[in-house]
Design a protein around this nucleic acid. Structure first.
Lengths: 329, 329
DNA sequence: TTGTACGCGTTATCAT
DNA sequence: ATGATAACGCGTACAA
């Protein structure tokens, strides 16, 4: 039951192996008629183009590696859609790698992609120090999504602005005691917090930042404590939608109505935020567009590896839903 | 800037290429001390194990292909977690392929995996005819998740039972006009519908099946029409959670309260169903466990390719939340 | 532990 | 323009 090889196809079609290779790659140098004949005989005998061998033999890498932090977060699914939309027409193979709970594994995920000999890596949601990412990018060009890493191609969504956007929305609603539920500071996504702090200070208020994780349950726990406080906030700004859901869990447990008793705003505008029951006010990063831009960048880098590090910036926007409302008196 | 190869490592460490190969595979035949020395020198000069070349040279395939229908559906993320949990300790490389909107591309997704020379394909949410799937499995062993394909290894969740579970729950709440919002019948997931019909007939009621798609918006549209009907249902059973969300959208648009005015039940128990605001009653397929079982099966098939087609069946369970309630009088 | 044939396409280089 | 021939890429497997 040996696999059929290109040699088999060549024999069956009465041509050379080289010609079969050209035919399968839509390369020039084969007449349309013979190409068709080759492909059809290939089908007859059940040949499938062996990408592994092709990749090994080829001098230039043809595939793009994609790192996604978490499949449970819809944001990354959107990013992936954007990537695919651009990469597919260019016949670029995508090689996926998914992050795991513990950050330290991010490096090994990138290693997996390197081992697959990808030409470029698009990374969405990388949680490693800037310096580590930079070091990695020396080996295989890296494109960071939603984060700006100096010296590395970045498709950045202006997190500082987004943080301000969220905070000022709450301020306009009359909130004063606004807490920011932050992600672990080691991850590098500090813009949102910075934007929050800026807006608070400008309004003459004291920022109150509490660090949490990406786990919904952790956010719920922290929010529960917060709400029991004598100085309980009237509004909570969570670093992402997942965490915001945790806050909503905590509110539900105390029979508090989001948007009335306490305002909650998330970040990502993931699909969960858009369910009628939840209706979470959030900041939209335009994930699809981020994915597209990153891929365009990747393709450009294939053409010209010596391009200096690029920075594409996109501006997030506020998506108003039901979990934010005027401060209750 | 040529990539460093195994040869380079061998020279630097003063050993043969063969030995370096063994070291990088954790294979026996290298003393612990030299293995450590080899790996460390490999690191020094920036070598990464070239999986492409390894795969080409190796006689037996080492990787498992994973097909996931849709990254936007949390169910598949759970399945993936289960797969990874089992595959990783066995050092099996996972190669991912994601389905696209139009089903006809499913075949090409499997083709991509075949091209990557995977030894087995675990497919979650495949939407192709049984016969096509069977044909594919002749070439590369296939393991179907959440679906039973005769002649193909299947980790099946008893959809018929699940359909009955959902329907009988609604019946017990006093509902009589229960509509089943079905997926496209060409996809092969017919058990849920069958279970629904069985339970309805047993209760002496006439089943009412309306076909929809996987798109939330389509479900919303259909539900809107349904609710305007003179014979409007008091309960809607959707073939999956995504569709159920669409139904909730439609209810929200008419200011109807799910669980009070109209009961809604989904299927999958995906994370969206578990938000406090949404609180969708659903059927849990135990996605994580399905992923685990499929992977165990895959590993067994690596050992023994001539195993006759296996069928593992798992039993879904009802997860009660807020969107179902007694029929309103 | 080592030497080396081998796996399967690709990419020059040549011939028609 | 079309097509053929042969060297090459980078590990793995097996005999020595």
């Amino acid at each position: 039951m040996a696999r059929t090889t290109m040699e088999d196809v060549a024999k069956a079609a009465g041509v050379s192996r080289a010609l079969v290779s050209l035919a399968y790659r839509n390369a020039s140098g084969v007449s349309e008629s013979t190409r068709a004949r080759i492909l059809s005989t290939g089908n007859q005998i059940g040949y499938v183009h062996n990408r592994i061998a092709a990749s090994l033999a080829s001098t230039k890498p043809a595939s793009i590696g994609v790192f996604l932090q978490d499949l449970h977060n819809d944001f990354f699914a959107d990013v992936y859609d954007g990537i695919r939309e651009i990469a597919e027409p260019k016949a670029r193979q995508l090689v996926l790698s998914v992050g795991s709970r513990n950050h330290d594994r991010d490096a090994s995920s990138l290693g997996t992609l390197e081992g697959a000999q990808v030409g470029t890596i698009i990374a969405a949601g990388l949680r490693m120090a800037d310096s580590d990412a930079l070091a990695h990018s020396q080996r295989t060009p890296l494109i960071a999504i939603a984060r700006h890493i100096p010296g590395v191609d970045s498709v950045y969504s202006d997190n500082v602005f987004g943080g301000q956007l969220a905070t000022e929305h709450l301020l306009q609603l009359g909130h004063r005691r606004i807490v920011f539920l932050a992600n672990p500071p080691t991850d590098g996504y500090l813009g949102r917090r910075e934007g929050y702090e800026t807006s608070m200070l400008e309004a003459g208020l004291k920022p109150r930042v509490i660090e949490s994780t990406y786990a919904r349950s952790d956010a719920a726990e922290i929010a529960t404590e917060l709400l029991a406080d004598t100085e309980a906030p009237t509004a909570i700004f969570a670093h992402n939608d997942q965490a915001a859901l945790g806050v909503l869990d905590a509110l539900a447990a105390r029979s508090l109505v989001p948007g009335q008793d306490v305002s909650v705003i998330g970040y990502d505008n993931s699909s969960v935020s858009n369910t009628p029951g939840t209706a979470l006010t959030s900041i939209d990063l335009h994930a699809l567009e981020l994915g597209r831009e990153a891929t365009r960048l990747a393709l450009r880098r294939f053409e010209n590896p010596d391009l200096e590090p690029q920075l594409v910036t996109s501006t997030p926007s506020l998506v108003l839903r039901a979990t934010t409302g005027p401060v209750s008196t």
